[in-house]
Design a protein around this nucleic acid. Structure first.
Lengths: 202, 202
DNA sequence: ATGTTTCGATACGACAGCGTATCGATGAAA
DNA sequence: TTTCATCGATACGCTGTCGTATCGAAACAT
């Protein structure tokens, strides 16, 4: 038995192109963000990625599979603020959320995922795991740190706050702002002003 | 000039069927909620409504037009609680939101609208005007009443609260709960517990 | 050099939904 | 009774996407 048996089976022939891999995933995210799920066809992805349909079908068997993979590859360049002050940490994290909600990619992608969730639960699942959960974990961690330091009331549910901060932001952008408008820069501060007195230690 | 000139032009021939009108709009909402936007085709609506395609094309020129009309017809059976106590009013209204979010119709329809908004802004607009705005106005009215009574801090922004309450609920249901799960009955109370100390008068 | 696999490109038949046209029947006004 | 738009039903050609097959060129191991 070779020691490399399952780590590097090394099949013969021309290796799969890593370039094509990236181009497919990139084209998928971009198409989804720019033109929406209905435009996300195999042929459309292939054309945008500069790749043959064959190359896609050799890797994936459906658009949904490509999306799931694309979300798995999203880099979570998410740093959890740690200034020593809970309110300041929350402010910085919320400002980061606002900045990302303004991004030309993340917000439209999320909207498409929401719409598609009814018929594609696996796509929603991947988005939850790779995009939503890290962000919510960041909120929870800050709150838990605050509780440990005595800055936050111990009976505050971190998960609830992790719903309300992004929930408020997303709702505002979805249903209040014009489609092309950005969230006001003072919105994070206003959200936290409404919440902080309810959760801070007394 | 006839006095009835523009109120009842009364064209000759067989009148449009009000029965068909209702069946089309009803089938549209149901199809959207059950199978999603991709399944919302003219032929699908016609079949479900028990109506000929001709009958639809005589009234609408696209699926989007039907959706806009369908939202305009949604009955806003929304009563604004008025118990004399602001927190109690908010609790009752939030409980109503929770109940509706559990509905088999409203929540999935909203999800489809969000997904479709990128390519169909007019549909989003109609949904905002006929579904979202009345609900947000209810929150705002309760808050403003509370401010007038001195129960709520005068510097609280009613619109912000009107974002955060439904935003938190929707976010939780979208990204936290399993697809078929209902919001816990105590969720409204927990949302308000987090907010109330931040907005109540001191 | 040879063998094997992937590359991008292209062609194929199948299918679904589009928007239009046409049908005889229906319902209300004149 | 006559007139006429609407009724549900059905057929039409068009288009876009599907998934598959096939091509010669390219890439890597032996």
């Amino acid at each position: 038995m070779s020691l490399q048996q399952d780590s590097k089976p090394r099949r013969p022939g021309r290796p799969r192109s890593a370039r094509a891999d990236k181009a497919i995933l990139r084209a998928t995210i971009e198409l989804l963000a720019e033109q929406g799920y209905p435009a996300l066809t195999i042929e459309g992805i292939a054309e945008r990625a500069g790749v043959g349909k064959t190359t896609i079908y050799r890797r994936f068997s459906s658009v949904e599979e490509i999306m799931v993979r694309a979300f798995s590859e999203i880099d979570v360049d998410l740093e959890i603020p740690d200034t020593g002050d809970t309110l300041q940490d929350l402010l910085e994290l919320t400002a980061f959320f606002r900045e990302r909600a303004a991004t030309a990619v993340l917000f439209p992608v999320m909207s498409q995922i929401i719409g598609t969730a009814l018929t594609n639960p696996s796509v929603l699942k991947a988005f939850r795991e790779h995009v939503i959960q890290p962000r919510q974990a960041a909120v929870r961690q800050i709150i838990e740190r605050g509780i440990a330091r005595g800055e936050v009331r111990p009976d505050v549910d971190p998960a609830l706050i992790a719903d309300m901060i992004p929930g408020g932001i997303i709702f505002h952008k979805l249903f209040q702002l014009p489609a092309d408008a950005e969230l006001p820069a003072d919105y994070p501060g206003r959200v936290l002003a409404a919440l902080w007195d309810g959760i801070k230690a007394r």
